[in-house]
Amino acid sequence: MTDTTGFGARATRVVTAPLRWIFEALDKPFQALQRLGGIGSMPWWFLLPNLLFFGGFVILPLFINFGYSLTGGTRLFLEDRTYTGTEQYAFLFDCGNYADPTSCREDRFWRGIYNTATFIFFQVSFLVLFSLVTALILNRKIRARGFFRAVFFFPVLLSPVVVALIWKWILLRDGLLNAALVGMGFDRILFFVSPEWAMFWAIFVSIWAHMGFYTLILLAGLQAIPPDLYEAAEMDGTSKERVFWRITLPLLWPNMLVVIVLALIKGVQVFDEVYVLTGGGPGTATQFIVQYIYNTGFTNQVQNFGLAAAASVVLGVVLFVLTLVQLAATRRRDGG
């Protein structure tokens, strides 16, 4: 971040070049504002555009969302909708037995919740495990460390659509993986026809795509552990296993906590890659909460905005709790 002469800085100058004339165009209006309101008013003028965007596209929608969830009908504009109270929520939560989605009136919602829970359980566990192992290995004195770090990191930057298509191409009926299976004497597997396999690949592909991000955070945490601790342990002749359990893991734990919670927050919102990879199928085997909201509000023939909004409020509550945990974890890590 300190390199101001390299390629990155030059590229940035090219990117920001169109901004230059905007700055010059805004010079006069802002001078006028300063003359008018004095220096005390200036922070507000600087904040205004951003606050307008936050207000219009985040804060206001948040309140409208509650409004929607309390209304029924299929019209988009709020004034055309009828107030139904908590009917949408009652509909979502109308279940004979919460452990069994088929006993619920809105079974697709509950199936989405159970699929998401299954997905999160395996995805987060293995994501954290593999990120940790990768970070530990990349933190060793290995050759070409920069190269290996890049190898594990680059999928993070690929778009979900690209990630899904890369893997779909491998997993198709006549794809590379089935060719390998047949070559080794096994039968072909139709991965997108079997619910278990579809879920497995949804989890696998999302770990493949996101592992590098968490590895990077853990690697930064590992590099922050003071080296003299390791030197002292080596002088005492402590075994490597003991060093890991007694020094590395406890000192890395705050970072692990941040990684786990971040992975949970992302996991609850899983949609893009899996949607392109499996389309939620076979049947509803890989349909998650966000896809339920998307389908209910935007793709079904009857666009049920109220129900979609109610489901997003439920999702929002879950995310809110997780974010509070994340903030607490981050504060603990940074000693704030």
Binding site: G56, F57, V58, L60, P61, L62, F63, I64, N65, G67, Y68, L76, F77, L78, Q269, F271, V290, I293, Y294, G297, F298, F305, A308, A309, S312, V313, L315, G316, L319
Partner: peptide, 11 residues
């Protein structure tokens, strides 16, 4: 954005 899809669509 996943939490406020419907209202942002309205806006």
């Amino acid at each position: 954005i996943t939490v406020i899809l419907v209202p942002v669509y309205l806006v």
